[in-house]
Design a protein around this nucleic acid. Structure first.
Length: 882
RNA sequence: GGGAUUAUAGCUCAGCUGGUUAGAGCGCUACGUUGACAUCGUAGAGGUCGAUGGUUCGAGUCCAUUUAAUCCCACCA
């Protein structure tokens, strides 16, 4: 019994995947050392957060990255697919605080040290979990080089970059309006604020002039900020207020004297045309305040409660303050009216609390020069976005870049390498621990804040290779070859990696950025916890296998476009993996004991030439698509070849020879079957690594090697020699013939009938009879007989014509003659329509003169064929009449 | 306000640099236990490619306008 006999009837992914993955890994196939003899191919895995579990987005990206990595590996590149995880500063800290809250502990109670201990425990637990989940996907990444954004090497890189930027004056501390999350109690960068439309109100408030000569009505969506007002601004050209500019107003409830200033920032058309100015709590007001030298009065604490500057409202939350303040305004007659107003409110991207713009001292990266340098490289084509439209997203961000607020009032993250002198206030930024103030020798303490989590992510492409050390890895694998990531992360990550790479390494970190879309549910909705429509990739893998999941996520997709995940897709993918399995099982079970010969050593038949030609074409197409990262096209082509060409036609055809007693024929067909199967498996391997590897193991002579390390097939001239052309054409004639006969069989397939064939020309008369038995089988005929004269056709036989012959089926009483006539008539109508269209086209001098010769020639040939066909069809119709 | 994407068979989507009767999967109809597979096979019905206008010998495929949906950015208090 051959080993193939032991293959189960249906492929069972669960039983194989884990063991296959362990074999790959233990044999070291995922690991490469720098090899000067070969070209490197490097992909850095976007490190998943240690807060999460694997979701379909990871699965999609893993499938894409791994498919490309496996392809490149088989093409002979020295591949590195480097995995890792991200500490995800704020996201993780939020989650840990939540967990602590359940235990009734606060972050402060635990203290910094205790908190960090909890965080590292968390990292160990959840970081480990997501790594295991990635493994189950089958990604061939180099776990020996696995990294973490807060491991020793990355810490060193972060400190180095911070110091370098500081030394160049590109990192500074500034007192600025920043986005403050009152729940996370930290500053956020602009990119970390998400705007959402909220229904609110517009309060119109009366501000009287000090001299009693009148008043100005201002409108606000945040009345509580009026406690920090230090001016009212109007447009310089606004005639309504021209006389008031320079005068003083009395701030209601507070009694502070504030000036009326003129500033072109104000839109005359909006509201009353007058704006209250709160420099400490609004970015625009801050700008106005700067221009007019206004005082900045902060009225809120960092936790969102009102501070001592809020007078009577001190201690209240912002919401409570707003309510009380509006009541007071109302009572004292300052409130003119309230209207409903929908406006956009900034929220924290982690906890979705409304952020408060606040004046605060934070660390910033000065972006302009960094962005300029990066943009020069990208504009010069050093980095290409796929699809190209995403370069616009990149540029729209980078061309309007603002300084990056990098300090976070959190504990989990890279602590800012700056020390403050407690005596003289000197700030020392250093690569090493500072113990005393270098200026006055006073005691120092390290800055309490940590860095934006994206600060370290930005260094990922080179920090993971050992930078700032000059390592062989860095030298060989940098710049990386490709970045695969989702389009929603361009600002956070892609742009920052690019400018960091350009600044620190002197070149862009990757030439290509392949954007993936978002995986949505079957209804096209985003998957989210609140909707409960998330799909757990692990459950899918448990049920259908990782191959099916990966295939479902790549088949028929386009780079950068969103896709929907559905039950139907995963089932179709699973069915396909089973199809491959069974096709292979069939091929392998039919091999016998003799060693399989190479296709060069056997006698090929026309149909062999046909399948080998198709295979050659497939290899070229798939290779092209892989090179262009068109994975959806590549999978589609392989799918179609394996199922519709190889299985449906070649294997069915092969059975004739396989079951014959002719050993020469048997060894020929076995050679071709194995040849095509092996190459199909290789082409499929990047997308369905497990099932293909599993099958590979059953192929005689392949037991020792692993498919993952096989060479990508080259197209071979043998597959399309000129002398094969005739044979291939003949094979295609036969296929067309069989299709015709099948279509003709309107009767139940069980009732077999004779098939009479009258070849239309010499070529057909020669090639067709050779394959009579295959035709008989494939056309479900009782027999296939060749005739030389129409006289031999029995009366009442129905017929059909195709390019190469006329086919007659003596069905007599089995078919309704009238229906048959109608069908042929319909066919005739269509045919004459085609002929008329072609004639008109060829009569058009514009077409014959301007179109490429090949196109015109093809049109002519077709017309000739169709005319001939029409003649024969007419004859058949006439016969039916008689 | 700016920018982008999508609109192709009942559903989900392909269709690259324009070239004959526009493809696939699922679903649907009819038939089929043919010595790999019912997670299967055979045949079939079903779109003229959102709308309008243009470029071209020729457009789903390029241009303009337009309609609808979605997304991103900015943000006027």
């Amino acid at each position: 019994m051959s080993r193939a006999e032991t293959m189960e009837k249906n492929y069972n992914p669960l039983a194989s995947e884990k063991a296959i993955y362990e074999t790959w890994e233990s044999k070291g196939y995922f690991h490469e050392e720098p090899d000067p003899a070969r070209k490197p191919f490097t992909i850095m895995m976007p490190p998943p957060n240690i807060t999460g579990q694997l979701h379909l987005g990871h699965a999609l990206q893993g499938a894409v990255q791994d498919a490309i990595t496996r392809y490149k590996r088989m093409r002979g590149f020295c591949t590195l697919y480097l995995p890792g995880t991200d500490h995800a500063s704020i996201a993780t800290e939020v989650r840990i605080i939540e967990t602590l809250a359940k235990e009734g502990i606060s972050k402060q109670e635990l203290g910094r040290e205790g908190f960090l201990k909890r965080a590292w425990d968390w990292k160990k637990q959840y970081g480990g979990r997501i790594v295991e989940q990635l493994r189950s996907l089958g990604v061939s990444c180099d776990w020996k080089r696995e990294r973490f954004t807060m491991d020793e090497g990355n810490n060193a890189a972060v400190v180095e970059v911070f110091n370098r930027l500081y030394e160049k004056g590109l990192i500074y501390q500034g007192h600025r309006i920043i986005n403050w999350c009152p729940v996370c109690k930290t500053a956020l960068s602009d990119a970390e604020v998400e705007y959402e439309s909220q229904d609110g109100h517009l309060w119109h408030i009366r501000y009287p002039l000090e001299d009693g000569s009148g008043e100005i009505v201002v409108a606000t969506t945040r009345p509580e900020t009026m406690l920090g007002d230090t001016a009212v601004a109007v447009h310089p050209d606004d005639p309504r207020y021209a006389a008031m500019v320079g005068k003083m107003l009395i701030l209601p409830l507070v009694g502070r004297r504030i000036p009326v200033v003129a500033d072109s920032y104000v839109e005359m058309e909006f509201g009353s045309g007058a704006v209250k100015i709160t420099p400490a709590h609004d970015p625009n007001d801050y700008e106005v305040g700067q221009r007019h030298g206004l005082e900045q009065i902060t009225v809120m604490h960092e936790d969102g409660t009102m501070n001592e500057n809020a007078g009577a409202y001190q201690g209240m939350t912002a919401q409570a303050c707003r309510k009380q303040l509006v009541e007071d305004l109302q009572a004292q007659g300052f409130l003119v009216r309230v209207e409903d107003y929908a406006h956009n409110v900034g929220t924290c991207y982690r906890c979705h609390t409304t952020v408060e713009p606040m004046l605060s001292k934070q660390w910033f990266v000065s972006m302009q020069s960094l962005a300029d340098a990066a943009n020069r490289e990208v504009r010069a084509g050093k980095t290409r976005f796929i699809p190209d439209r995403y370069s616009r997203v990149y540029f729209s961000y980078m061309d309007n870049i603002r300084d990056w607020c990098i300090s976070r009032q959190l504990w989990w993250g890279h602590r800012i390498p700056a020390w403050h002198c407690q005596d003289c206030g000197e700030v020392t930024v250093s690569r090493t621990e500072v113990t005393a103030c270098p200026k006055c020798g006073g005691a120092v303490r390290q800055d309490e804040d940590v860095l934006d989590t994206w600060f370290s992510s930005a260094l990922w492409p080179f920090a993971t290779l050992g930078w700032p050390q000059k390592t062989p890895d860095l030298d060989y694998f940098y710049p990386t070859s490709l970045l695969v990531t989702a389009y929603d992360i361009i600002f956070f990550w892609v742009a920052r990696m690019i400018f960091s790479g350009v600044e620190q390494m002197g070149e862009v970190p990757f030439p290509d950025v392949l954007m993936t879309g978002i995986v949505r549910d079957a209804q096209g909705r985003k998957m989210s916890k609140s909707l409960g429509n998330g799909i757990d990739p692990l459950e899918v893998i448990q049920t259908y296998g990782a191959d099916a999941l990966r295939f479902a996520l790549t088949m028929g997709t386009t780079p950068g476009n969103d896709m929907r995940y559905s039950q139907e897709k995963i089932e179709a993918a699973r069915n396909f993996s089973n199809k491959i399995w069974n096709a292979s099982r069939f091929v392998l079970m039919g091999l016998g004991d003799a060693p399989v010969k190479s296709i060069d050593e056997v006698e090929l038949e026309p149909i062999d030439g046909w399948i080998l030609t198709r295979l050659g074409r497939l290899i070229r197409e798939v290779t092209d698509h892989m090179e262009g990262y068109e994975l959806g096209m590549a999978t589609g082509k392989v799918y179609d070849f394996i199922w519709s060409t190889f299985c449906d036609w070649y294997i069915e055809w092969a059975k004739q020879r396989l079951y014959s007693d002719d050993e020469t024929k048997k060894e020929a067909v076995r050679a071709v079957l194995v040849h095509v199967l092996e190459r199909s498996l290789i082409l499929m391997h990047p997308f369905m690594p497990f099932v293909t590897e599993k099958i590979w193991d059953y192929i005689p002579g392949r037991e020792e090697g692993s498919l993952i390390m096989a060479s990508w097939p080259e197209d071979h001239p043998l597959y399309h020699r000129d002398e094969d052309e005739e044979a291939i054409t003949a094979a295609m004639d036969i296929i067309r013939a069989i299709r015709n006969i099948r279509a003709e069989m309107k009767v139940p397939q069980g009732k077999r009938t004779r098939v009479l064939i009258l070849p239309a020309h010499q070529r057909a008369a020669q090639s067709l009879p050779m394959n009579a038995s295959a035709m008989e089988k494939l056309a479900y005929a009782q027999s296939v007989e060749f005739i030389t004269d129409k006289q031999q056709v029995p009366k009442g036989a129905v017929g059909n014509v195709c390019d190469w012959a006329e086919v007659f089926l003596p069905l007599e009483d089995l078919v309704d003659i009238e229906k048959e006539k109608a069908r042929l008539g319909k066919e005739r109508e269509k045919l004459s329509g085609d002929i008329a269209r072609a004639e008109a086209k060829l009569a058009n001098p514009g077409f014959t003169g301007k179109a490429p010769a090949a196109v015109v020639e093809k049109e002519r040939e077709n017309l000739a064929l169709n005319r001939e066909k029409l003649t024969r069809l007419d004859a058949q119709l006439a016969a039916l009449e008689g």
